[in-house]
């Protein structure tokens, strides 16, 4: 497995973590009512969405550079 493939796998795992963390933080906010966790949830959602965009773009870019 090349670094490119491992990087894409890592980004996928990071996306799962970001959305999973957002779900955990939303649940913590609804059960304990801590305002900080709501902010963390929203930031995590944004970060996860950013990672999805990054993953698609970096895959295309590395492919365009001929890196397998």
């Amino acid at each position: 497995m090349s670094l490119k493939a491992f990087h894409l796998l890592f980004v996928t795992a990071s996306v799962v973590l970001a959305f999973g963390f957002a779900a955990w933080a939303f649940e913590a906010y609804s059960s304990r009512g801590e305002g900080g966790t709501l902010l963390l949830a929203l930031l995590s959602l944004l970060f996860g969405a950013g990672l999805v965009v990054y993953g698609v773009r970096v895959r295309t870019k590395l492919k365009g550079m001929g890196i397998q």
Binding site: F6, L9, F10, A13
Partner: peptide
């Protein structure tokens, strides 16, 4: 080195 670094980061994930 990048493969090693990704593994270490994946462990943290």
């Amino acid at each position: 080195a990048g493969l090693y670094w990704h593994f270490v980061d994946l462990v943290w994930i």
